[in-house]
Each structure stands twice: as structure tokens, then as C-alpha cells.
Nucleic acid binder design. Structure first.
Lengths: 189, 189
DNA sequence: AAGTGACCGAAATACCATTTCGGTCTGCTA
DNA sequence: TAGCAGACCGAAATGGTATTTCGGTCACTT
């Protein structure tokens, strides 16, 4: 395998296991079986390497989300499935988990920036779906960016935050019921 | 003025200016013109004193919010006015500002607990209004706690969080438009 | 030409001496 | 003698500094 790929794999492994701060360039080099200087042939610094890994993860996340959509299903059904998949990825994928944890405990700036740009990318992804829905005549014209924001934040609140102050998680039915009645119903043509 | 009141005023002043961690019992005693031991005659410890002050603030916040509601106005209008008032209080009231800041930077556990219980109280307040709306036949029956949660979180996201990733704040019109079309419209009879 | 790892200095960490502060308690004052 | 004050205590926080860590470079090897 080519050296760049080796380094990417090693970095992904290390960032996933130890987070940003605790992965050292020495460690990445060691895992990749490569001299430390070699890393700097392909990546100009630690942050750029990190960005490459994060970007790769975001692409994978979007692909996974995309794959959950079904051909004949309604807009809400697919939107719901896609967003739930995004949230599931978020709390399942090792690297993502580690980054959220590091942001909470360590406040590493590079990690904060990464999470911000990930959310931005997710919102762009959702907004794109909404625009396509509008173009296909399934949805009323609307401010796709604003709706994407409200929708994603609502999901985040209902799926992740509710259970922080209540004993049991909301069921998927409760979530679909409340959102179909509110945000989705206002979108549909 | 009685000594308990003096102490409360001194504590409120100090917590507002310096936050929880940086207000010392010595300082409170000094401001109140009272010996430190005297504080312990009225409050069993620093946390209890803090709770008293926070509780007083929450009561005031609810009162202020209550006062913005108009007699003849529709449910949405009053709900909107009340919640906007809550959010305004949140970013206007010295003590509240200080607590949010301290939670973000210092992570003082007592402050985190206080903010959690404040939010809980706000949600109870909103849920109560929804229940009254249902009882008066203005709103459809619904899970008031869940709706209160979604509504308040939506406001928080639109008013406070949107501007963190975008250049300009949302206008009040944009906010009412989007929420009247979604959450509120599903509530109304 | 491509790759390596010893090396550099800024920044983080660990360590410990010193200070701070919540809470107690004895003695003072009215 | 009841209510109040502030000196006092020890656990915890803080500050200063000796030491280590780590991102990035570069002279050397293959």
C-alpha cells in the first residue's frame, strides 16, 4: 500500500482511540511504520492531517445516510431515516464519539473547529435534500438553510438532549409523531 | 433592614459580579456588614445561600415574563412574547449572564446544577401555559411537557445559536414566521 | 531523490510550597 | 444570656519552577 494511505490509516486509528490532543506525530509514524519526517512529505502539519481524516469521516457519514433512503418513500420518511442515521453515526462511530468527548472535557480548539465544520456540512447536506424536494415539487418553497437548521436541532434535542433530563429516551414513534405534526407538515405541498 | 435580608442582598450582588466560585463567604459578610458566622445563622452553607438567590431570580423572571402577556391576545402572540421575554431576561440579567459564563468557562458543578434546575423550572412554566391553553379550548390536547421542550429549544436555537454560525441574527419576523407555520400551527384548535 | 530519526525550543506537565476559603467554635457585647 | 463576631482549622486551590513532551526541522543515510 502506498505510504500516504498507510499514514491516513494510522492517523485515523490513533485519532479514534486517543483523540486529537493525545495522538502524537511520533505515534502516527510508529503505527504507520514510517519515519516521522515522512508524514510531513504528505501533510504540512498535524492539523492538516486531522482535517483529512475528519473530512473522510464526513464523506462516509453522508454516504451511509444516503444509503438509508428508499426509492419510493415519501419525503418525510426518507428525511427521518437519513437524519436518524446521521445521529446514529454520530454516537456510534469511534472517531466521532472521541471528538465529542474531547470537545466536552478538553476543549481542544482544533476539535471544536472540526465539530463546527462537521455540523455546517451536515446542515448543507440536509438543506440540499430540502432544495431537491422543492425542485421536485414535493415541498413548498422555503428557506432551506433555516428549515434544515431547525429540523436538525429539533432532532438533536429530542434524540440526544431529552434523555439528559428525563429517565427514558423518547421512542422513535413519539419523535415522528411530533415532527410530522409540526415541521414536516408545514413543508409538504 | 433585617440581617437575613442584608445578607441576601449582599450575596446577590456578589454572585452577580463575581459568580459562584469567586464570591467568598468573607466577601458576602463584608458587603453585608455582618460577621461571617452570622451568615450561618440563616443559611446552612454556601450552596443553600446560592440556591436562595437563584430561586429569587427565577421567580422574578417568571413574573417579568408573565407581565408581557396581553389580555386579549392570541395564544401564539402571548406565548411568543413570554418566551422572548424569558430569553431576553436570560441575556440581560447580571446574575444569569454571570452563571452562563461561569458554566462555560469554569464548569463549576454548583452552577451547572443551578442552570439545569432553572431550565427545568422554565419548562414547567411553559408547560403550564400550554395546559391552560388546552383547558381553555384554545389548543388541541397534547403532551405539554414535550411540546414545551421542543418549543423552548427551538427558540433557544433560533435566537441564540443561529447567530453563532451566521453573520446576522434572525429577525423576530423570521422567527415568528417559521414557528407559526410549524409548531404553533399544529397546536391551535 | 526519498526517507529517517536525532535534535530543537516552545508549551505542557508534575511537583511542592504557599495561600485561600468554607465552615466551626469560643469568647465578647449589648 | 442570646445573638453575633472573627480567629482559627484543615482541605483544597493556587502559583512558581524544574522537568518532560511533542510538533516540526534538517542533516544525514540509503
Amino acid at each position: 500500500m502506498d505510504r500516504r494511505e498507510e499514514i491516513m490509516l494510522a492517523a485515523e486509528k490513533s485519532f479514534s482511540m486517543f483523540g486529537y490532543k493525545a495522538t502524537t506525530m511520533d505515534r502516527v509514524a510508529k503505527i504507520a511504520n514510517v519515519g516521522k519526517g515522512t508524514i510531513y512529505t504528505f501533510f504540512s502539519n498535524k492539523e492538516e492531517l486531522f482535517h483529512s481524516i475528519v473530512w473522510k469521516m464526513v464523506e462516509e457519514m453522508k454516504n451511509v445516510s444516503e444509503r438509508t433512503a428508499k426509492e419510493g418513500a415519501s419525503f418525510q420518511e426518507n428525511a427521518h431515516a437519513r437524519i436518524m442515521q446521521l445521529l446514529k453515526f454520530r454516537e456510534t462511530h469511534q472517531l466521532f464519539i472521541k471528538l465529542i468527548e474531547e470537545e466536552k472535557e478538553l476543549r481542544t480548539p482544533a476539535v471544536g473547529d472540526a465539530l463546527t465544520s462537521i455540523e455546517k456540512e451536515i446542515l448543507k447536506f440536509i438543506a440540499g435534500k430540502i432544495e431537491r424536494g422543492v425542485a421536485k415539487g414535493e415541498l413548498k418553497p422555503c428557506d432551506s438553510e433555516l428549515i434544515a437548521f431547525l429540523l436538525f436541532r429539533s432532532y438533536l434535542a429530542l434524540v440526544n438532549d431529552w434523555s439528559k433530563t428525563h429517565d427514558e429516551q423518547l421512542t422513535e414513534k413519539q419523535i415522528t409523531d411530533i415532527l410530522n405534526g409540526t415541521i414536516f407538515s408545514s413543508l409538504l405541498v
